[in-house]
Write a protein that binds this DNA or RNA. Structure first.
Lengths: 347, 347
DNA sequence: CCACCATTTGCATCCGAATGCAATACTGCC
DNA sequence: GGCAGTATTGCATTCGGATGCAAATGGTGG
């Protein structure tokens, strides 16, 4: 164990403390306030001092301590971002884009990933403890939790999670409109026997999509729609399709997302030797990457992720700057992708 | 606009400051230190006091300010996580898993997303300013940047980014071993004319994979291997395959990742009416979700993401606890997935 | 040459929680 | 009842940077 000696080096200045503004001030022969002022934008400092301070800072490798700064300014410059496993897996770019856009405005992202859309309570606690300036959440928060955040004066933007009544900011894709379009196209092309593969019952997005599709189908005089519940995953799409096809023979299957739609197609082809879209049309929702693969060419509705993340970030930043702003809901239409997985009247 | 009145409510005490330990102390009739002690683990406090403090804290909705705590304890309990767009898009679960595992140990994740693997400098600055306790990076950092972190006593774990010499912790999948296996299987099954679709030249992972494959091919006496450069994306796989097939007729194509492998398959089938694996075998690397789709059933090597993220988190936490620990490199073998996209001697 | 205003600079204080030390309260034991 | 020994509690200070205010400096015009 002579290694012990190495550890002890720590005693002899191996762990030299990070340089503080006082260290820089001493080296530059100025006051600590001066250093602080040089490292801010709107502060007054003579050219001479600025140079001396920067030189000293550079020599010491000084970097302002954002923690200390946050304590005194009451601004952490951190935004809490909450995602659920689901969200991130199907839309990895959401997170990347949010982070990049925040970063362009000098805001860091403190990330929270939920296994399932439960235990949000500890997440709320953590975010409050870390004094985030605002929150973007792609996971459902309860009204009570939103109230806690509001009470703490922390603006929140819900991402694809609008509450009908609550007075909260939100950005979302118009799920219902998208489904209505899909149904309309399918019916116009002559489809009459529909099946739906929904997402998990506790997913508001799935509820909206399924309800939207059913409503439109009803309007068009189609009923007897078989609804099978999936979990948004590929395998569950296959399972759902297997169950659907063993029971009946629909001419169109509406899946609540692309992953399941792809599962449906694979199962129809591999498990039942059916042609898609010849024997059965399949449509999805989301417009994720694999939807474009030649084997599927999904007919789907693509969420305008870029515009949505931009809207979320700018809405949040505006409200951090001006907490008095009233709340706002922004709804984006999805992009209609014909693809080839559904037999449509040529549009 | 009588709504204005609602906003104005803020004037009448809407903005009541967040409760501090002093507020709780006053309400509970104890000292601030007492409050602080109740909110820690190893501190001494009588049952009576604990109850009074907790009651007061609860009444005020008090939550300890992690920023202030971090300032005094010199521990932010935040880990910096750096990802590149690439990493996250192909392995969204890496980020989710890292975050969840850190969270289980009371560590929050401060996220940095790089557009491309450049401008890491500002990221380093940010992480230092925010006093992260450690860093996990899935993007390349320069030796100089690693030196800065080491100098600041911040442990780092490279994720799939080992530097051969540098004295840094790393966790990675054995890219070369995986490629050697793929090549071995293909050659054993009789393939002789190979093409490779590599990733971008500046990707170390791609370099390792391509070099590994080439080395093994050479060992087995196969040369004249055509290497086409892609960008890891599906479309670039299609383009690469188109260029390969217009020039020659390989019997095996090795793509540096699954996304490009899928592109290769689609192009061979759709663009050249070839059968995969009948006319040409295609293999990938990564084992991402779409590799399992029935239309592809990729022969690939799956990275053991779960074990890798677990290793990364535990290695980092250990080194935060004990900075004197020497550095360590952990290399995981990928999981060999036969799939059906390559004609192999039945294994 | 001096009064006057604008710009720099430093001093002192503050943000909110943690903690070493000393003071106090409580326990058990003889 | 008295005393040593331990468990609680409070006091005062600290972390590192921001900022209001006053002091000092510099420049200008009369």
């Amino acid at each position: 164990m002579p290694k012990q000696a190495e550890n002890d080096k720590k005693g002899d200045r191996g762990g030299k403390r990070r340089a503080t503004s006082y260290d820089v001030a001493r080296l530059a022969g100025v006051s600590q306030s001066a250093v602080s002022r040089v490292f801010q934008s709107g502060a007054s400092a003579s050219q001479d001092m600025r140079e001396r301070v920067l030189a000293a800072a550079n020599e010491l490798g000084y970097r302002p301590n954002a923690i200390a700064r946050g304590l005194i300014t009451q601004r952490s410059n951190m935004a809490g971002v909450v995602i659920s496993k689901q969200t991130n897996l199907y839309y990895p770019e959401v997170l990347v884009q949010l982070t990049q856009r925040f970063s362009e405005h000098g805001v860091r992202v403190l990330l929270f990933a939920l296994e399932h859309e439960g235990d949000t309570q500890s997440v709320i606690d953590q975010m409050l403890q870390y004094q985030v300036d605002g929150v973007v959440t792609a996971a459902m928060l309860s009204e009570a939790q939103l109230a806690v955040l509001k009470q703490a004066q922390i603006p929140v933007v819900l991402f694809n999670r609008a509450l009908p009544d609550a007075n909260v900011n939100s950005v979302r894709c118009d799920q219902e409109e998208g489904e209505r379009w899909l149904v309309g196209e399918l019916v116009a092309a002559g489809h009459r026997r529909f099946s739906i593969v929904s997402g998990p019952a506790d997913s508001p997005v799935s509820t909206e999509r399924t309800a939207g599709a059913l409503r439109r189908l009803e309007e068009l005089g189609i009923d007897n729609v078989n609804v099978v519940v999936g979990d948004y995953g590929y395998e569950s799409g296959r399972a759902a399709m297997a169950s659907i096809l063993s029971a009946q023979k629909p001419d169109a299957v509406i899946a609540a997302n692309d992953a399941m739609a792809i599962g449906c197609i694979d199962e129809a082809r591999e498990g039942f030797s059916l042609d898609v879209p010849g024997d059965v049309s399949v449509v999805g929702f989301d417009g994720v990457g694999p939807a474009r693969f030649a084997a599927y060419k999904l007919c789907t509705v693509r969420q305008p992720v870029g515009r949505m993340t931009e809207a979320a970030v700018s809405m949040l930043l505006e409200r951090i700057e001006n907490p008095a702003l009233s709340s706002e809901k922004r709804v984006f239409s999805g992009e209609r992708v014909h693809g080839g997985s559904a037999r449509l009247s040529s549009g």
